[in-house]
Amino acid sequence: MPRVSRKQAELNREIIVEAATRLFRERGLHGISVIDVMGAAGLTHGGFYGHFESREALAQEASGRAFRQSADRWKDWIAANADKNAARQALIVPYLSAASRDNPGDSCPVVAFAGDMCHEAAESGLRQTFMEGLGSLLDTLTPLMDTGDDARDRQQALVQYALMVGALTLARATRGDALSDEILEAARTFLTAP
């Protein structure tokens, strides 16, 4: 069988990482096999190890990408608003929406991966990637609190993000029931109240 060109190999790797990023967000970091990822990428599973040394290496790269995508989206939403309160609301409203709840493959990696991190060793690469990604999102949210005190801003960001993550998690767990929409609405209303 002829070898693929370097350009095609790079494209295939990109397709694999993008497919894994979506699948890991949808099903968690430990619920996906190499065969699942390669199938979603439209490639045979035999070629996987030509791109990655292990499934763990792919999971770490894909989770890092998921966090970068979320951070970039947050920064775009923030940049589109003139003041900090409007920027914070522009972040909260889509985060706590039915679209976010119903499309986990393109949504918050913290919600997708937090359960897996409870079972991950503190020194693992996946855990380190999670902690860096979470830190980046919190660093993006913190300046929007604008209390005039850095420590209080950080505390407010932690509380608000914990509420956002918890509400989205519960809304997904109760999807299909009226309670799911009620959870999203309650959290959105609380967080966007003047």
Rank of each mutant, 00 (worst) to 15 (best):
H30N: 14
G105N: 07
F48Q: 14
K7G: 03
M145N: 11
Q155C: 05
K84M: 01
T147S: 15
I15S: 00
F67C: 13
A171F: 02
E10V: 03
R27C: 02
G133Q: 14
E18S: 12
E132S: 15
A178Y: 07
E61Q: 15
L163V: 12
S54G: 13
A99D: 01
E132K: 14
G31T: 04
D181L: 01
G64V: 13
A82T: 11
Q60F: 10
G148V: 09
N81S: 11
T169V: 04
R172M: 06
L29I: 13
A41P: 08
R27Q: 09
R3T: 02
A41M: 06
D116R: 01
A187M: 05
V93G: 00
D116Y: 05
L170M: 10
I35P: 02
L138S: 13
A173M: 06
Y95E: 00
G39C: 00
Q60W: 10
M1V: 01
G125F: 05
I15F: 03
E182D: 10
R175H: 05
V165C: 04
A20H: 03
D36T: 06
A80W: 13
G176Q: 00
E132V: 15
R73P: 07
E61S: 14
D149S: 10
S136T: 15
S124R: 10
Q60E: 15
L23Y: 06
R152N: 04
I15Y: 00
S97M: 05
M38I: 04
T169S: 09
A99I: 00
I78R: 12
T21N: 06
G135V: 13
D72N: 11
T169G: 06
V37Q: 07
R6I: 06
E53D: 14
D153R: 05
V4E: 12
G176C: 08
L163Y: 06
A151V: 09
A121T: 13
P94N: 07
S124G: 07
V93I: 04
L23N: 05
R13F: 01
I16Y: 04
A178R: 05
L141A: 15
A167Q: 05
L163T: 12
R175L: 03
A9E: 01
Q128K: 03
D83W: 09
V17N: 11
S180T: 00
G135I: 12
P94R: 03
E26A: 10
